[in-house]
Amino acid sequence: MMEFRSSLGRVRGLGNSKEGGIGHWWAERLAAVALVPLTLWFVYSAVLMTGADAAQFKAWVGAYGNPVLLILFTIAVYHHGQMALTVIIEDYVHHEAANLIALVLVKLGAFFCATYTIFCIVRLTFGG
């Protein structure tokens, strides 16, 4: 039988990640690069918040520059984590329905947690 599709066209989309493996790989590392300085800053800050009361905590969250760094940290953490869990699910969860449900839960869960955390950071910054 004649085959009109190219070799690349026949294998495209057959990998574990279906489409977009390279884009996923790159985005996960881009978030990782951002997380190197953000994480070191966060650990330093969290140590300073050991035993802090609510007033001291609010003052730290709202201090100059901190809300932006906290929001960037939140986005990078959940973005990177969600992409990494996606790869792990693709590797280990072979049952088709379980795979789909796990992927949807991870992606929507990360989206919810990140949005909620950012909302809390904004609220602590502007009072209320």
Partner: peptide, 9 residues
Amino acid sequence: FTYWISSAT
């Protein structure tokens, strides 16, 4: 982290 931040609200 989310629990910690949100608790203050």
